[in-house]
């Protein structure tokens, strides 16, 4: 089950511009639709929609949240194993790997490289096996 768009949609295109996998189709000022095979359930469309026209995969109507208040990943380097899973999980590629921490600690760690691009999906936290990523 993917997200769906209801008749409340006014075709503003906000969701289409944000969708990281080009899963939303539709003409401007006309009702949009989500291509189920492409949708990855990131929920960005629901958070951005000013009309409350998006229903999540559980059938709940998504509420618009001001983008500055979307939760962002926070990384705990003490738990992190530098395994790259969170970086790969990010559908917008906004997580980068830092340079080596120091000569004694030659490991790089994930960090939010492009905060503006983050869509707050939480996939990075969801996929981290060791709980080193938290959304806040």
């Amino acid at each position: 089950m993917s997200y769906t768009i209801t008749d409340c949609c006014n075709g503003c295109g906000a969701c289409m511009r944000l969708c990281p996998v080009d899963a939303i189709a539709g003409e401007k000022k006309e009702k949009h639709r989500i291509v189920e095979e492409l949708c990855i359930d990131c929920g960005a469309c629901g958070r951005i929609c000013p009309e409350g026209a998006v229903i999540d995969s559980d059938g709940q109507v998504c509420s618009m949240i001001k983008r500055s208040q979307w939760s962002k990943p926070r990384f705990d380097e003490k738990l992190c194993a530098s395994c790259n899973i969170c970086i790969d999980a990010c559908p917008v590629g906004c997580i980068g790997l830092s340079k080596a921490a120091s000569e004694k600690n030659p490991y790089g760690y994930p960090f939010l490289r492009d905060e503006k691009a983050c869509i707050g999906c939480g996939f990075c936290a969801d996929e981290c096996p060791v709980g080193a990523v938290a959304m806040a």
Binding site: S82, C83, N84, K99, A100, P106, Y107, G108, V130
Partner: peptide, 16 residues
């Protein structure tokens, strides 16, 4: 070596 290199999902990082 400037930084350790980890393949995807590797907690060890034998590369560099």
């Amino acid at each position: 070596e400037r930084i350790k290199y980890h393949c995807y999902s590797c907690p060890l990082g034998c590369g560099g």
